[in-house]
Nucleic acid binder design. Structure first.
Lengths: 327, 327
DNA sequence: TTGTATGCGTTATCAG
DNA sequence: CTGATAACGCATACAA
């Protein structure tokens, strides 16, 4: 591996000036710069990040903490964050953490593979009781996406309430009156806005929401199936289902199909996320977009301490087969 | 930030000995070790990775190169790799690359956020003509998963041929004789074994494979839909479809359902991957497991230069609704 | 078993 | 505009 010294020697220029060229200083004469750049090419020199980091104390690395699960949501976030980092000249390092260890080990701590300048945490971990002190111990600027619990780090609010309301309004416009919600776990505050949006729409339309119409799910497919069975065993059954995410919506919908219900003629379903599963299902699932790019960009800007004007992009609901029919 | 010096000062022990404790040397007396450990706790000391890296030249970091796509396959790999790294005391850093830049920029090069000791590449990028020289330029030990093209780095072979054969044998056992394949692009060698397995099964059963029965797809959902339309417009139509992956299988299957075909009574489908979509679909999709853990473990061992005995875990086919019925 | 001195590759200080 | 030189935090050869 060639070092900066080698480059200096080969080009006959001092180390300091080579460093200047490397860091894009404008106080270097063009012909000198050219010489240096040629030497760099010839030696295939690449600066040692570790050394640079040691002396500057900065790495320009943001760590994104993701759980050890293969969920579509997380890979979308990874992609969006990587893109956002690139666009501001920073780097993204994805660090997975062991969910089991987090739950079981009282002294659990974030393990970082390399020195970073900031950390970003995703829901629902943004509010996890062991995550907060661990972030604090790191001592790095931290952005907690969709976090709700006050504490260490910056909270990036995600506003799902209005889109959720739009989705339920759509179901109402299709003629549904008894609309049930497959809701997030009651301790998962980050998704609670979807529940509130549901109640907004119902209230605005003067529709009743019996307590039993709100099923607290685990947000997993199986839980959606369970929700469907439970809600359909009520004396007064719902005719439409609004789910906190696509996974539970599909769990409910496929259970309905297996039992012989027709979708959307007999029952309507709407999810949330616009996951590939929602697009590929038959009937395809009505759902709502997640503003991944916007969230990622804002998170990265917050993380690196550049607080730009936040442009709220309008949210979009995606109407598909699972909800489109008159009753 | 506390340094090793601070720890030494506080505990009244020399730097060298503190370093010994940190690196788990066994030549330190227990009471001294205890003192050092207490000082570390009190100061919340954490060794600076950059400094350690600078002097040892090693980072114990493996970089996993993933494209900027949110595909389930990649997130499974990320998870499995992270786990495999942890189990050998190494770290995984996920580095996303810009597919568009890779395709368009003739001088494209892998951009690493931090110094790594090895790199792992996933299919189909393991064989990409711009990936190979870029890996070589990095000069790090590289593992190319499911790679086929000779060149820089180590090739980790993935043997899908036999499972693919089993899957097709299952379709044959269900009474199907005209079985079409939604195949990988002909230049994607990493998935070609699935095609070969299909031909194995057909040949062994003495079944004919007209050229038109092998549709070269892009491996995306829409391409599966296109494949179905094309294959069903043949004078002699297939009754079963074996797809190179779940995405194309679902593309074909949902198209069939939309056109009023019954699955599996009229037509049978099998995919490959065991993705969430395959489980959540209705009818649920017959498919095959991917040995993520095994591949990840082996890749990591190869990357760090520990060549252990490779235990081939048996592959598993997953029989679901989309294929299970007598004709 | 412990302490001291040196160097890893880079940036930054300060004098030319 | 340029060039010596001192850090940065840690590991290690070498000496005690």
């Amino acid at each position: 591996m060639a070092t900066i010294k080698d480059v200096a020697a080969r080009s006959g220029i001092s180390i300091k000036t080579v460093s200047r060229v490397l860091n894009g200083a404008d106080t270097v004469r063009p012909n000198i710069r050219a010489k240096v750049e040629q030497a760099i090419r010839e030696l295939q020199y690449r600066p040692a990040l570790a050394a640079r980091q040691l002396v500057t104390g900065r790495s320009f690395i943001i760590v994104l903490l993701v759980p050890d699960t293969a969920h579509w949501y997380y890979s979308m976030m990874v992609q969006a964050m990587a893109q956002a980092c690139r666009s501001v000249g920073w780097h993204l390092v994805v660090e997975t953490f062991d969910r089991q260890a987090l739950e079981e080990d009282e002294h659990w701590s974030i393990g970082l593979s390399c020195d970073a300048d900031a950390v970003i945490v995703l829901p629902p971990w943004s509010d996890h009781p062991r995550m907060l002190p661990s972030l604090e111990r790191l001592g790095l600027p931290a952005v907690r996406i969709a976090g709700r619990v006050p504490g260490y780090g910056m909270l990036l609010k995600v506003h799902d309430r209005d889109v959720a309301r739009q989705l339920v309004e759509h179901l109402i416009a299709q003629g549904h009156q008894r609309i049930a919600m497959i809701a997030p776990p009651s301790d998962q505050l980050s998704s609670e806005e979807r529940h509130l949006g549901y109640r907004d729409a119902m209230a605005a339309a003067g529709l009743d929401v019996p307590d039993a119409f709100v099923f607290r799910s685990t947000m997993l497919f199986e839980s959606g199936a369970e929700a469907f069975r439970q809600l359909m065993s009520l004396p007064v059954r719902p005719t439409a289902f609004f789910a906190v995410n696509d996974a539970t919506a599909l769990g409910a919908m496929t259970t309905a199909l297996r039992l012989g219900f027709r979708v959307p003629q007999d029952l309507a379903f709407a999810g949330f996320d616009n996951s590939p599963e929602s697009r590929y299902a038959f009937p395809s699932l009505t759902t709502a977009d997640q503003p991944f790019e916007q969230i990622a960009r804002q998170a990265v800007l917050m993380a690196i301490g550049r607080d730009e004007e936040q442009v709220e992009t309008p949210r979009r609901i995606i109407l598909r087969e699972s909800s489109q029919s008159a009753l």
